[in-house]
Simulated assay, not measured.
Amino acid sequence: MAESVFAVGDVIAERSVHLTRESLVRYAGASGDFNPIHYRDDIATAVGLPGVLAHGMLTMGLASSVVVAALPAGVRVLEYGVRFTKPVLVDAETGADVHVVGKVGAVDDEAVRVDLTVRCADTTVLVKAQLRVAV
Rank of each mutant, 00 (worst) to 15 (best):
A92I: 06
V8G: 02
L78W: 02
E79I: 00
E3H: 10
D122L: 11
A134K: 05
V82W: 01
H55Q: 07
S16R: 15
L49Y: 11
T85W: 02
I43N: 12
L19E: 14
G81S: 04
F34I: 09
A44S: 07
A63W: 02
A134V: 00
D42V: 06
E79R: 00
V90T: 12
E22V: 08
V8E: 14
D33V: 10
V52G: 11
T59C: 07
A111E: 15
A28P: 03
R15S: 11
E14M: 13
L49C: 04
F84N: 01
V11H: 14
E3D: 10
G32S: 04
A54G: 09
M1A: 03
A129E: 01
L126N: 01
F6C: 04
V68P: 08
V90I: 08
D10V: 08
G56W: 08
V82E: 02
L116S: 02
V98G: 06
G61K: 03
V8W: 09
D91V: 03
L126Q: 02
A129M: 00
T123F: 05
A46R: 10
S4L: 05
V47C: 14
V127N: 12
D109E: 15
E93Y: 04
A69S: 15
V135R: 01
L89G: 02
V114M: 13
V114R: 06
R119N: 09
G105K: 13
D42Y: 03
